[in-house]
Design a binder for these strands. Structure first.
Lengths: 172, 172
DNA sequence: AATTTTAGTCAGGGGGACCTGATTAAAAAA
DNA sequence: TTTTTTAATCAGGTCCCCCTGACTAAAATT
């Protein structure tokens, strides 16, 4: 029987982490007058970038399908990324209806920069703690995959694949 | 000397958690045609709600100052919350320039509902793991408070106080 | 009493995440 | 070849976060 109090403690800390984490990089960006702004989550433009970093050179339609977005939204995000020089568009030669989207160098950097640096807030944790955290998060993430699966069976595999693949280089 | 690989593993899991977590409740809301929509983060309207749940009956100006928002943004968020019947506005009797903002019953419920339920993804973790997670997140959060402090010394106390106070009932 | 400061409001704007509807161009099917 | 399907685009919308500028009403100062 799991101890409810312990669950609540952990849940509270997680919520706190969410808030504090969010605020921390809000504050950070505020001070640095950052060009790159926010971290690009798994949403909108960031979603596109992440998907491309796993499978570059997809068509817009492909992207839309994989990411569960309308083709119009996808086009919008892609265009925004083009303006930021993170991806490029080019007509397919084999099927001239299609537009192939590719990461630019900058786009690749950006996509991996997301995950490239170990956040400072992990410093001060012992090796043991890091191992524990990793193990626990693995469980939690699996629970979340299961939740996603329950709610929307069709897209799970796609999603899980994208995420895990994106993060694969972290776990070598 | 901290093991870089272990840090990377943990960092990767944390990023994965972020993505998966986000997607999980995105999917959840999509299916349930949810009225309450998104979880109200420490941002915009959610920020206001959280601040009020710590100190009810503030003036708009007070809110703006504490939350580091322009008075206009604050007014916007407050008005939206009024429409949702989560807060109420009333003119101060002692200083008729001021508008006092108060949580409605619904607002109080909503603010605590945020933190009221233990997320399902914590199920399956043992008591030991929960304790470990709590301890680790405590360290991480403290690191983040320190980061915020470094970047913006003036607002730390305010922020940390709001957050901790908000979450106090979790840790009794 | 006249001036200045303060708390709010309105108007307008920039970005972001998404969507539906209508239309075009190119490929595939009939 | 004509029709249908497919990949994109344009147009227009909804809602969110957040800001500056201009202006009013009510206090605090002078």
């Amino acid at each position: 029987m799991p101890d409810l109090t312990k669950q609540k403690n952990a849940a509270g800390k997680l919520i706190e982490f969410d808030m504090v984490h969010h605020t921390a990089d809000e504050v950070a960006h505020r001070n640095h007058a950052d060009k790159n702004k926010h971290p690009l989550r798994f949403q909108g433009q960031g979603k596109i970038l992440l998907a491309l970093s796993q499978a570059d050179g997809l068509s817009q339609k492909e992207l839309a399908t994989r990411l569960n977005l309308s083709v119009q939204s996808t086009a919008e995000f892609v265009n925004k990324l083009v303006k930021k020089d993170l991806v490029s568009k080019e007509k397919s030669t084999t099927d001239r209806r299609k537009t192939i989207i590719r990461l630019t160098n900058l786009g690749q950097q950006t996509a991996s920069a997301e995950t490239a640096k170990v956040p400072e807030f992990l410093s001060g944790l012992s090796d043991t703690e890091l191992d524990q955290l990793t193990a626990i998060l693995t469980k939690i993430n699996n629970n979340l995959y299961a939740e996603i699966d329950a709610a929307s069976p069709t897209e799970t595999n796609k999603f899980e694949a994208v995420v895990k693949d994106r993060l694969r280089d972290w776990f070598l």
